[in-house]
Design a protein around this nucleic acid. Structure first.
Lengths: 132, 132
DNA sequence: TATTAATATACCTTGACACGCATATGCTCT
DNA sequence: AGAGCATATGCGTGTCAAGGTATATTAATA
């Protein structure tokens, strides 16, 4: 028996790679614990523990089939993620043109975090102490 | 100077609530560190550290403006999340199909398109987004 | 009832990371 | 150069979650 059920956000839940793998596996059809165990090649206690977390968070539900439990997906939590993403979708669709120009330039440069922006030698607008 | 850059998945990045808050703040427009600090009421080192993580992961980029750094969103990582979500979207649209057909008549779901932090019970039916 | 299969849970250890605080770095203006 | 603002980073600490191993629970079957 658990004492307190930590309320993890849906984002923390899907941050775990094994849990995402389980969810992806369940998207096609329901699976028993043993099937998940074999397909993802992870130890059974690990599977059970992640399923427990997923179930507590509402990502999955289970039904009993003899000694097995069949787990299947529930849509709501991932829809929540989807909903959080909505404003960003609007953002990037609004910036498609600029994005394309960006992609042209950066390609796959791993970022210039170590080079302290040589291009800033050209000082931009000197701003007065903007009190916002 | 950092030694090895742990490759955190985009999901681990957005698992952190403060980082999600920063991203949501940036979706409207670019912001300086100080602005983020004030708007989200978190200590400056915290903001900088999260921005560092976000920048390393490609969620944001910055430009120099005098002593300030202006941070703005980059779309790719969140698009990656969006892409991961795609199979599940198909799943749940298949599941709510019947319900959706019912509700389609009153199709008045054009409400809170502009309220970003509406993380309540966002139980609204996400439209199928049928593959074009 | 004993046995085996399937799944769940307890305990322990380890490592990641978020935070607070202090300090360093960098830029601007006088 | 020096003061002051804006931002970044280093370090120490506490928390929490994931994995491993062993064990408990529940169901089916002999």
């Amino acid at each position: 028996m658990e004492y307190i059920k930590r309320v993890e956000s849906v984002f923390e839940i899907i941050a775990e790679p094994n849990r995402r793998a389980i969810l992806s596996l369940l998207v096609s059809s329901q699976q028993s614990v043993g099937e998940i165990e074999r397909r993802l090649r992870m130890p059974q206690p690990t599977v059970s523990k992640h399923l427990r977390v997923l179930r507590d968070a509402g990502f999955v539900e289970s039904t009993v089939d003899a000694q097995r439990r069949l787990y299947r997906l529930k849509p709501e939590p991932l829809q929540e993620v989807d909903a959080w993403l909505a404003p960003f979708r609007r953002f990037w669709s609004a910036h498609i043109d600029a994005l394309e120009r960006h992609l042209d330039r950066m390609d796959r440069t791993k970022e210039d975090q170590s080079t302290p922006t040589k291009r800033k030698t050209n000082k931009k607008v000197t701003r007065p102490k903007l009190r916002t």
